[in-house]
Structures are given as C-alpha cells and as structure tokens.
Design a protein around this nucleic acid. Sequence first.
DNA 1: CAGGATCCTAAAAGATACTG
DNA 2: CAGTATCTTTTAGGATCCTG
Lengths: 125, 125
Amino acid sequence: MHADSVARAEVGHQTVTWDRPTADCPVEVALAAISGRWATLVLRDLMDGPRSFSALRAGLPSLSAKVLTERLDSLVAQGVVSCSRSPGFPVRTSYALTSKGLLLRPLLVELYRTGEALLSELADH
Amino acid sequence: MHADSVARAEVGHQTVTWDRPTADCPVEVALAAISGRWATLVLRDLMDGPRSFSALRAGLPSLSAKVLTERLDSLVAQGVVSCSRSPGFPVRTSYALTSKGLLLRPLLVELYRTGEALLSELADH
DNA sequence: CAGGATCCTAAAAGATACTG
DNA sequence: CAGTATCTTTTAGGATCCTG
C-alpha cells in the first residue's frame, strides 16, 4: 500500500486508496522502531554491541527506568532486540540487536545524513 | 554530536557524552519532519507536487482539519514546506515542498525499504 | 541488578461547531 | 475554501517508591 505511496512519490502514479496509517504499512513498521523519545539513542548504543539494563541507563542518564523499560519492551516486541537474563543473583540482563534490528542501521545513518542536509540547507528559496 | 553517534554505530568508537535528544542533533531534526501521525502521508502527497488544503484533506479523509493544520504548520515552520495563498475570494492555498523538503525523499524511500525488510525478515534468530 | 506498580502531568489527537 | 476555537479523550512521558 505505502508501496504505491513511495512508487507514487517516485514515479508520480496514483493507484492507492487508503487514508490512514496502518500497522502493515512498511513505513509505519519502520517508524515504529525508531519512534518514541530516546528510541534512536537506545538503538545507537545497541549498535555497538549488547548492553545491560544498567549500562543503557548509564549512557542515557536523564532517561527513567520506566521509559527505558517501555522502549526496550517495544523493541523486543517488534523483534528488533532480544533480551537474555543470567540465572542466579543478582540478575544480569543483556539486550542485543537481533538480525532484524541490524536492518535498522542504514535507516539510522540515513536519518543522520538527512538531518545534516536539512541543517546545512539555507531556509527555503 | 549524534555525528559521533553514527560514527560510533559505524566504527565502534565512543567519544561523545550527551544524554538526551537535542534540537540541534541531526537525527532529531530529520525525525521532527517525519514525526507525528499522518506526517509521512502528507509529505508523500506533496512529493507529487503542490496541493491545496482541501486536496490534502481529500487524500486523507480520516484526518481532521485541525490535525492537518498542525502538521502543515509544523512542516512550514521547519522550512520543508511552503504555503502560498491566492488573493481574492474564496482563498486558495497551495502547499509545496521547498528545496529542503525535497531532501526528505531519500529518507522516505529508506523508511519504506527498511520497513519492507523488517516485514520479510523472519522473527529473530 | 532489573525492573514493576502507581500516580501525575503534559502533549497529541479527535470531534464538533463556527468564521474570514 | 481554508482554516480557527473549544472541548474531550488518548497517549506518552516523568517521578517516586517498591520488589524478585
């Protein structure tokens, strides 16, 4: 559906007739992974390798435990991040990108690239 | 700053020490343009060429005038969309992408591409 | 250590009615 | 036509305290 969207954007055709974001639209799917405050930062940290809950918190001091949990739960639910907990006590967790999660890297790079371009482009004309 | 972020993600280095999304971070800048419900859909429509307020509404039936106005105001404020109003009555508007706005096209394409990849990737492993 | 449980505030979205 | 104004609902985010 949004397939046609982009095709439309690229080619100029117009064949679709849908009117709202749906969960099955690729654009919405990708957006879901990077949306929410701190999401891109958490992902960036995980791009470097597995991280524990505390390590992630340490890297993002102003992020509360609750929000980090929400973000991670969401990423895990989307299958882009996996979580393993060590047995024993105290518990240790290790969050890591899954193969799906690695697919997000080019998007993050493009996000950065586009942001830079926007910043260097003089306002309008 | 997020420059180092992506560098970090790409190279594995770690040199930055910031903890929250800031307005001057390229990633946040790019994200601002595509965030908000309907934002990508409005942008997609504009990728085909200038559109009037009503034309945009017609394309996105379940989007209220209020939200469309908010979205457009935001895009105009960010300098990615421009608005011109015809003199006389009844007023006619024409929203169009600026040169900055066109910079978003590759991002939208990448967003779509990544979403597709996520959808076709089997969950985890 | 790694969260869960609550409560609260704020921002975003939606519905409806109205105006220049 | 192209919005504005208002109000209500929904959702996200944050603060604090508590637990396996």
